[in-house]
């Protein structure tokens, strides 16, 4: 459906990022293809969130570059991101959903249609008129996901979208993510939940101390990690 203007694959070459002279990411080379979700894993502070920001062009890389395929003038219009800490506007749930849709130039009817659909997707329909910032932490995270999904991006970056969800909500969100992926949305997701990574991942990028140590198909990565660090991490023994 959206194939003609596809922006994938996405390529990062020699990607590095430093803040205040401290190198946070170094020499990342990575290709992200259309298809099943790419999971970014690694210990705290490995650089997962920074990597997603670089790919989403929220941060300018210090070295290297990110290139997108296809003729699309502004690849960001085909992307969306759900942040580790959801940022909700000081408005109602519904208004939060409408805001980016209006920015994208959709008319009011289309905004309402997509907002209703997104609310149903994450089970927040009854809360449509509630002030968004008064929702519980988990509800806020689901709203942030719904808001990004309503944009129908080709690539959706997710930074630990299930971090504060209860088990049932986690399962529900996972199902939502599966549905999005099945619809053709490319998910690029950071997570600490290895079981979830196993269930969702098509391929896995493993980060450690700002370096990309492995990028492999999920089955191979989980069965036989190529580096000692990844193996230790999977055993739950790797510290930052």
């Amino acid at each position: 459906m959206r194939a003609p203007e596809a922006i994938l694959p996405l390529r990062a070459e020699g990607l590095g990022f430093s803040a205040d002279g401290v190198a946070i990411l170094k020499g990342i080379g990575l290709t992200i293809e259309a298809g099943r979700p790419t999971l970014v894993i690694g210990p705290n502070g490995a650089g997962k969130s920074v990597l997603l920001r670089l790919l989403h062009r929220l941060l300018p890389p210090t070295t290297g570059h990110v290139t997108w395929d296809g003729p699309a003038a502004d690849p960001r219009r085909h992307q969306a991101m759900v942040f580790q800490r959801p940022v909700l506007l000081r408005r109602s749930v519904l208004a939060n959903l409408r805001y980016p849709l209006a920015l994208a130039g959709l008319d009011r009817a289309e905004q309402d249609r997509r907002a209703a659909e997104a609310l149903a997707l994450v089970g927040l329909a009854p809360l449509a008129d509630r002030p968004a910032r008064k929702l519980s932490g988990g509800e806020q995270q689901r709203l942030a996901l719904a808001r990004a999904a309503a944009l129908r991006p080709e690539v959706l970056f997710l930074d630990e979208p299930c971090a504060s969800l209860d088990p049932a909500a986690t399962r529900a969100v996972e199902e939502t993510l599966q549905a999005l992926a099945a619809r053709g949305t490319k998910l690029v997701m950071a997570t600490h939940d290895l079981a979830q990574a196993r269930r969702l991942a098509g391929d896995v990028a493993f980060l450690h101390r700002g370096r990309l140590l492995e990028h492999a198909p999920a089955a191979r990565f989980f069965a036989a990690p190529a580096t000692a660090e990844a193996a230790a991490f999977l055993r739950g023994e790797l510290l930052w």
Binding site: R53, H56, L58, D74, R76, R77, Q79, A80, M81, F83, V87, L89, R90, R91, Y99, P100, L103, A104
Partner: peptide, 27 residues
């Protein structure tokens, strides 16, 4: 500070952010 990344992710630059901040900061 809180909104900047999210709004940029939505494709809203500083100009578009002005009315958003004015409205969200109304209280």
């Amino acid at each position: 500070e809180e909104y900047a990344e999210q709004l940029r992710s939505f494709g809203a630059g500083p100009w578009r952010a002005v009315p958003t901040l004015l409205w969200d900061g109304r209280f």
